[in-house]
Design a protein around this nucleic acid. Structure first.
Lengths: 340, 340
DNA sequence: TTGTATGCGTTATCAG
DNA sequence: CTGATAACGCATACAA
């Protein structure tokens, strides 16, 4: 029966409706510019043929893809999942599609993913944190891709960021820790190399110590990747020290949960013997026993606002504004005053 | 200075290297087909210009996108995160890029996302579960897009699936529940409408009951969405019944954790007074107190195998084989024999 | 081994 | 309001 059954094109629709391809295109993109009667005929043809516009062709011709790319360190972590879901929902509402890649915390992979997304015609990019090679930013600049940083906030940096003050938030938490009487403070941090959020959180603790007359260099610090087991392991190491720290501040809730678990294994009472704190306030924080004293980050709000700002940038309605999302301390059971 | 600085094209590279666009293209796609000396010159030009091939153009010309699409119900859930991360890693290794969308458990949205991904030239599609309109499958057929189902396994269905037997696994767990002495069984299930995994898990429980001389219709069943709070709420309702069920089997770990939490609030001892079981064995299951007796699903293995199979299909090396991933019971603390 | 020329499916410009 | 037609950037048969 003639042509093999493959995806119908604009041309097929045009022929079926007895009009030109230009008219079909208009019906789809600016319906108001074509008279009702014609439009009806065209739409009917579109329906009956099951026509779907070819994206690649459209991008090439229109030089717009209505696609936003996002590169996150990992998908397998509640920290990014929630904010990203909201980010996507917001994009959808505005007619954009989100493309997500994860870099496994590897700068090389991230760089490659950025190139991939740009090559795919992403109209804009969402990145996590500011820490990356100047080369990457130069590339983005060259390709004129509006970019926005999230999960981090620094109004003096480029690209603009929609996030929260990691240092300030951790500072506040540490202040609180110190004010209940802790002096021997230890910290289990994420890998700070190439991770400005992790770096800032450590800084926050140091600042609070210095501000309270403690020696910031006396902070016992272990860096490890964001996994429960790693948190547990690090906690074990800290408990082997003598004198023991009276509080273990963790770079995020996942590490803190690991610490809690190890404490249970070691028969150490939290918070009676040792206090533990987290960061992020993911679902887990409320579920463990004792529930975590942590920093609440409104991830959904951040995702939503980031989406709005990035869309504004892409559509030329904004030059790129930085936005600070407020975090707040959540006092649950894992922080108490140190044992006498 | 002449042309505005925009992204360089094949043509720019060709001119810079003093060759034709065809040669540049060959250098990039089949380097062995061009002599070393020329290739060096070309590659140098590519580097210095910071050239990145335009994806849309490439797709249009080659009719291949090296892109795989995946549509999952939600990103904000550990169930899919882990398997998907592995799926992506595997794709990357084979030179494919993953595009992820989430449908928020809405069939209409899912359908739309499928069209979007197809329009974007996805070479293949990963879907979760078999339950969807015939219309969707017809569309996929028409566009000749190789598709694979995951998180579900049914060798008799089309498309082929790489997953696990939800009914069989839950049956096994229920057998175990019954064998320790439980007779008054309640279940908190996910919404079964349009979710074959949830349906199968309920069936599994019913089958075990019937096989053990219990009345499968006597199963007290509450359906609710997969959220901790919902699980807690449902558990509360079940505890208000009289007589109370002696065991609450949950459709997944998230619901089970909610149940655990509500039990704590109500002062009900788990498992002394009431037993609770989960499904999936996400990280959470091991962390809560008591740790969950649940069904372990090797998500990473599933993701990896699904990727391999789908790639084989896309590359014409497989017609599509279904693969069953083995689950296994994990006995932790939340299941015990009923109180006398 | 390399170059030439054509087509991929759309959008957009410009006439009619 | 509608129809030709020229890009868009690349891959690839075909020629040289």
């Amino acid at each position: 029966m003639g042509k093999t059954r493959s995806a119908p094109t604009l041309n097929d629709v045009a022929k079926a409706a007895g009009v030109s391809t230009a008219t079909v295109s208009r019906c789809l993109n600016s319906p108001e510019r074509v008279i009702e009667k014609t439009r009806e005929r065209v739409m009917h043809a579109v329906e009956s043929l099951g026509y779907t516009p070819n994206f690649a062709a459209r991008v090439m011709a229109a030089k717009r893809s209505f696609t936003i790319g996002a590169i996150i360190p990992t998908m397998d972590n509640a920290i990014f999942a929630r904010g990203l879901q909201e980010f996507q929902d917001q994009l959808r509402e505005s007619g954009y599609t989100l493309l997500v890649s994860s870099s496994a915390y590897d700068p090389k992979v991230e760089h490659e993913q950025i190139r991939t997304l740009v090559a795919r015609g992403a109209d804009g990019l969402l990145l996590i944190g500011h820490a990356r090679d100047a080369e990457v930013y130069a590339y983005l600049e060259k390709h004129q891709i509006p970019s926005l940083v999230a999960w981090s906030y620094d109004p003096h940096m480029h690209p603009p960021s929609v996030g929260f003050g990691n240092a300030a938030a951790m500072d506040e938490l540490a202040q609180s820790v110190i004010s209940v009487g802790h002096r021997r403070i230890a910290m289990i941090s994420g890998i700070t190399q190439g991770n400005d959020r992790a770096q800032a959180r450590v800084e926050g603790v140091r600042k609070a110590m210095a501000d309270n007359g403690l020696d910031a260099n006396a902070l016992t610090l272990i860096e490890t990747s964001y996994e429960i087991d790693k948190g547990a392991e690090a906690f074990g190491q800290l408990m082997a020290l003598s004198p023991r720290p009276t509080v273990v501040m963790c770079g995020n809730d996942v590490l803190a949960v690991g610490a809690l678990r190890q404490a249970e294994k070691l028969g150490i009472q939290i918070p009676e013997q040792v206090s533990v704190t987290g960061f992020d306030d993911i679902e887990l924080a409320e579920i463990v026993t004792p529930a975590l004293t942590t920093v609440h980050v409104p991830h959904r709000e951040m995702g939503r606002k980031a989406a709005r700002e990035l869309i504004a940038m892409v559509e030329g309605k904004s030059e790129g504004r930085s936005l600070c999302i407020d975090t707040r301390l959540v006092n649950r059971g894992s922080l108490a005053k140190p044992p006498c």
